[in-house]
Design a protein around this nucleic acid. Structure first.
Lengths: 225, 225
DNA sequence: GAGAGTTGTATTGTATACAAACTGGGTAGG
DNA sequence: CCTACCCAGTTTGTATACAATACAACTCTC
């Protein structure tokens, strides 16, 4: 991540996801270039990548704006993730070796440690979670699938969701991972696929619930003003 | 397609798919720029797009090469297409209106015309086919799915396949379209999904068969040299 | 006062120049 | 003979200048 275009990508992405650049904001290359401390060239590259992720959209006349993600959009993205991650799980189950299963188990143990700390370590949970899914993606040995998922990784959405989780919900996630491991051990692609689909769909509903309560909070704040 | 980067994209892509730039060939920006009659800037943009489609890959040191697509890679791509197009079909079936179904029917009639000409009009078939799937994609109203499929549209593969088809096989494709329309009329997402999955998977095997005979031809040619 | 044309400004697209990084081969030292 | 290193030639990354296009405000006309 030392190249200028990577920094620009990371920074602009962060500005969007943090809300510093709100939905619909016009993204002017030169302004972003200055804020990132680089020239327009790497900013352009970053914008193309963000466009592919649908985080920014362009008008008919090539101007770039921050896309607005409605709950429907998030639902659609989770739908896709569910389908693709399930496919990953099935392929992984059919190809995985004993040693990789061992790594998954170790990783899921680390996740459990993070959850069971005195105060749940959400950061640790997220790192473990990321690694767990990365190992599976690698085991699936499918560059195209990996490429498609990369454009869908709404890690920030997962992040927000996890922070809403209580210990109990984090444990449910952990147990689903266990079930995935069991499916992998038996090389049962169908089982792995089904568990993964449920895993992602549950995550979506956790997000949606959090979203709804956030909306009501916003409404309250607005009413108070 | 009047912007230089679009032309560069189309031209480089064509050079790759036609075999003018063979698998593994090193893609030097300046050389491509000259061949396309543009500067390096639009070529770079084109290469990033092709990279996202996995038509070119980059080495650890940022050099670009033409990716080599084994039969396994093509199989993986078709797998993905089958899953995603099925999802498109299901969503479309749940949202489509009568007028759009009418357009599909008209489109499929045009396809039939092309097939039933004295000499089958493969170009017409391909145009109709493209339009048919585009209408469905539009009806599914899912920008993310559309974006993902765009990076998978191996139209050239479809093209090669269709040219191997006889009239009978073209008609089978036509009849599958009819069945899709029937599923749409009834709003039966499950049916549409299943038919579409079969449609794509059959296309893959048609490709694989053609590929195998092409391979033996190649082998013969090599042996003769 | 409304609408079409016009012009100045803002923004994106492309070309080019230069800087940084990699490649491959040759040479010195072990 | 092998290894490590270094140097010239390539190739990619970034900055900047300029061209093309879009936008918005202002006329001018009716």
């Amino acid at each position: 991540m030392s190249r200028a275009s990577d920094r620009a990508y990371a920074q602009v992405r962060e500005m969007i996801l943090s809300g510093e650049l709100p939905s619909g904001a016009h993204l002017v290359e030169e302004v972003l270039a200055e804020r990132c401390g680089v020239s327009r060239t790497p900013v352009r590259e970053a914008l193309r990548r963000l466009e592919a992720e649908l985080l920014v959209k362009r008008s008919a006349t090539q101007r770039m704006y921050v896309a607005d993600w409605s709950l429907d959009d998030v639902a659609e993205a989770f739908d896709l993730r569910a389908v693709l991650e399930s496919m990953v799980a099935r392929r992984a189950a059919e190809k995985i070796d004993a040693q990789t299963v061992k790594r998954l188990r170790a990783c899921n143990n680390a996740i459990k440690q993070a959850i069971c700390a005195e105060v749940p370590d959400v950061g640790g949970f997220l790192d473990g979670n990321r690694e767990f899914h990365a190992i599976i993606l690698q085991a699936a040995d499918s560059p195209r699938l990996a490429a498609l998922l990369a454009t869908l990784i709404e890690q920030p959405v997962v992040w927000r969701t996890a922070h809403q989780y209580g210990r109990e919900e984090l444990m449910r996630s952990h147990h689903e991972h266990d079930e995935l491991i069991a499916a992998f051990e038996r090389g049962d692609g169908g089982w792995a696929e089904a568990v993964m689909a449920a895993h992602v769909r549950r995550a979506f509903h956790a997000y949606a619930d959090a979203h709804k309560s956030a909306l009501s909070t916003d409404a309250l704040v607005e009413a108070a003003e």
